[in-house]
């Protein structure tokens, strides 16, 4: 047992001679409230006109004010009563009234799109029946509602805003371009100045370097003479073996490379190329693609070794 007071719509219902009629009245008023570009007086007159043969027997104004306040509980109560006590014919006539109320002058507002579909679901009316009924009443097919949550809807319905935005963006872009150009010019001037400064500096540096170079050359010559004297003395003391080690590159690397290609030391350039071709054909990894992956890996390692040797020989020979 709830101790809350009776809500206005419940009082209206208790006063009504026909609860179904009162519930229908509220739902039609709800549809009317969501019609756009209509004054309140027009709404009330339209509602009275449509519900002329209803048997509710009370004033319309309380129902209208409840519909204006969008009282969800009242609407739920009306929907429950309508679902409970509506026959098939009655539900079609209710839907008929709702469609006429929603589209007197043509346009169905977005909210009414969804409200009509809600009523159709409530009254167990299939989509095909609803669209036929709508087509018969308005002469137009029931389109799916437009989507104001998308950019395209507003591009179509408020093109002024977007054109203005585009203009602003263009102006901003122009301003930015001009600023960039100015900055570019300034940069160029600065760079020219810098270049001039750099050239001067370079010239000074070059002069200094030339001077240093001359000094260093003199010093080097002195050093070399001294070192040669030292080394000749040292070599004479140490023998020839140490001197041979110091000279690079070690000659055995090319013999090893030749061995990789299966050639004796001292082979000619054309011999090397020929041997490389033969070895490459023999060890190319593509020959082993039918074998296991391991074989392919081994072959590619061998091929790599051969190729490295060939490259080295081509560079040094």
């Amino acid at each position: 047992m709830s101790m809350a007071r009776f809500s206005p719509f419940e009082l209206v219902l208790l006063n009504s001679r026909s609860q179904v009629d009162t519930a229908t009245l509220l739902l039609l008023a709800w549809v009317l409230v969501h019609r756009q570009h209509v004054s309140e007086g027009q709404r009330r007159r339209r509602l009275a006109q449509v519900t002329a043969q209803f048997r509710h027997g009370h004033e319309l104004s309380p129902v209208m004010s409840i519909a204006y306040s969008q009282d969800l509980q009242a609407i739920q109560l009306a929907a429950e009563i309508l679902r409970k006590e509506c026959s098939q014919e009655r539900s079609l006539s209710v839907l008929h009234q709702a469609i006429t109320v929603a589209t007197d002058d043509g346009d169905l507002s977005l909210a009414n799109h969804y409200i009509l579909r809600f009523l159709a679901d409530l009254l167990n009316v299939t989509p095909t029946t609803l669209s036929t009924l709508f087509y018969e009443l308005t002469g137009r097919p029931l389109a799916s509602p437009e989507d104001p949550s998308r950019d395209a809807y507003w591009q179509q319905h408020n093109p002024g805003y977007f054109s203005q935005k585009a203009r602003e963006a263009a102006a901003e872009q122009q301003a930015r371009d001009e600023a960039a150009q100015q900055a570019h010019q300034k940069n160029q001037q600065r760079e020219q100045k810098k270049q001039r400064k750099q050239q001067e500096k370079q010239r000074q540096q070059e002069e200094a370097q030339a001077r240093q170079e001359r000094e260093r050359q003199q010093r080097d010559e002195q050093n070399r003479e001294r070192a040669q004297q030292d080394r000749s003395r040292y070599e004479r003391a140490q023998g020839e073996r140490r001197q041979w080690q110091r000279t690079s590159p070690p000659p055995d690397r090319s013999t090893r490379a030749l061995a990789v290609l299966g050639l004796p030391p001292g082979a000619s350039r054309s011999d090397i190329r020929l041997a490389y071709r033969r070895m490459a054909q023999l060890h190319h990894p593509d020959r082993f693609f039918t074998e296991s992956e391991h074989q392919v890996a081994l072959a590619s390692a061998r091929f790599q070794r051969i190729k490295n040797a060939y490259d080295y020989l081509m560079q040094t020979y």
């Binding site: 969800l72 609407i75 739920q76 929907a79 429950e80 679902r83 579909r117 809600f118 159709a120 679901d121 409530l122 299939t126 989509p127 609803l130």
Partner: peptide, 13 residues
């Protein structure tokens, strides 16, 4: 309303 009236899987929704 649809949740309370059990119409969340209606043909029009």
């Amino acid at each position: 309303l649809r949740a309370r009236l059990g119409l969340t899987h209606g043909a029009h929704w």
